[in-house]
Amino acid sequence: MTQAPDKTNWPLVALLYALGLLAAGHFAKAALTLGALAERYPEAGGVLPFAVSMTSVAGIVFGATAGIVVARFGARRVLLAAVVVGVALGAAEALLPAFGLFMALRLAEGFAHLAIVVAAPTLMAASCTAEHRGAVMGLWGTFFGVGFALFSLVESLAGTGLYWVHAALLAAVGAAIAPILPRGVGRGGATAEGWLARHVAIYTSACRFAPALMFFWHALMFMSLITFLPEFLGGWTAPLLPLVALVGTFWAGAATRSIAPQRLAVVAFAAGAALMVLFLLLPGLRLAIAVPMLLAFGAVPGAAFASAPLLNPDPADTARANGAIAQFGNIGTALTIPLFTLALGEGLGGMAALVVVLSLAGMAAVSVIFARVSPSAEAG
């Protein structure tokens, strides 16, 4: 196990967080430019939206393996390789090549994205004191929403030039962070096991799997909530709802210093489900109810990311846990829109019922998996 440093390396934490924002940009740049891409690729038709989800494929298939790769080669090497490859792929995408090649580049870029979201939080956790770790991991949990919001602003100014901006920023942050990245973090315990055996090693360990299982139920709901709730609140709320959830995420990360992550997550799921029922029953108060509801659901990823280093103090195991989070997060993100679209066939009542069912499932899953976590591991 690697001992926590005596002092938090805030410049390194800030640069790693910046890489997280750029990892969010892997998804944001395609999602925000779908209209322009439709004009560039009229032959794509109904396949075009998959330009966004193609980046999820790597995480779904290889999320857990990425943690093993970090454990084998170290977080520094993996992160720098991801930056170099990401810059090259991003620049190639910016040229808007033929559609088949563009989609292939999006698929390949998913591996760079995956490497960043596994290696960066592992390095962040290893670069801060035990006192600051919860808050730092809570900060990391906000990367997707903050990054998406920032790239929305860039897209409004640059259009498809967003692709060039993203590649340039990734190169700049990579150059700034390379000299100060610590060596050897996250490396250790790698084996020559096959793909299946590696997954078994992670998913038979309660400490490594618990954060991912917690995050999965959040991922099954979050994107759909911020996508569909504005239909019942007013379109003007669309850019604000993710920011509300991010407050809950950051607060939860800090709160894990005094509240066990699993207790925080169970309470958050319960509160979110109850507030969703009130959202259905009290139409005149929906905006007032939506704010605390998203704060509650936003607390879950903060608890999940904070629990990864708490349950797995060795950075190599933290990397494995973060890999599992990435894998299950991508699965949840891929499933959420279809699930909620189906539920909304029954109107808001169908959506509310689905939220309650998923929240109860999340509460049960978290309770069961954390019951298998040893007290010594939970204490960190």
Rank of each mutant, 00 (worst) to 15 (best):
C128G: 10
H26F: 11
R187E: 11
Y163F: 15
T333L: 12
M137L: 10
R372A: 14
W10S: 02
E39L: 12
T333P: 06
G194P: 09
G59F: 10
T333G: 13
V61D: 05
L229Y: 06
G302F: 14
F232P: 06
E193Y: 13
A92L: 10
G174K: 01
S258P: 05
A175T: 08
L19Q: 11
P239R: 10
G302T: 15
L285S: 15
L295A: 07
R106I: 05
A175S: 10
M363C: 11
A371H: 15
G349T: 15
R76V: 02
P315H: 06
E193A: 15
R320C: 13
T204G: 08
A104F: 08
I289F: 05
A274H: 07
L342W: 13
R263I: 11
F209P: 00
Y203S: 14
P239C: 07
G134M: 04
L311W: 05
F222T: 06
F62Q: 08
A64Q: 05
A288Q: 13
L294E: 03
L32N: 07
M293T: 02
V185Y: 07
L150T: 10
A371Y: 13
M103S: 02
M363S: 04
A364L: 10
A270D: 07
A352D: 01
V13G: 06
R257D: 04
G332P: 09
L280V: 09
A238I: 09
A115S: 13
V267D: 01
V117W: 13
S367R: 14
G345P: 01
F73M: 12
A14R: 04
I259N: 00
G302Q: 12
I226C: 00
S56N: 15
M293V: 04
G90Q: 03
A254H: 12
I289L: 15
L37I: 00
L32E: 10
A365S: 12
L89C: 06
L37A: 02
E43P: 00
G350L: 02
H166L: 11
P309G: 11
G138Q: 11
A326R: 01
A377L: 10
T160A: 13
L37V: 00
G184V: 06
P301C: 12
V47N: 01
S376Q: 15
F340D: 03
F232W: 13
S376A: 14
A210S: 10
P179M: 12
R106M: 03
A36E: 14
V368Q: 10
A18L: 12
Y41G: 00
G86V: 02
L21N: 04
A178W: 07
W236Q: 13
V85L: 13
T333I: 13
T227C: 11
L240A: 03
V70K: 09
G74S: 09
N322R: 11
A115D: 05
L80F: 10
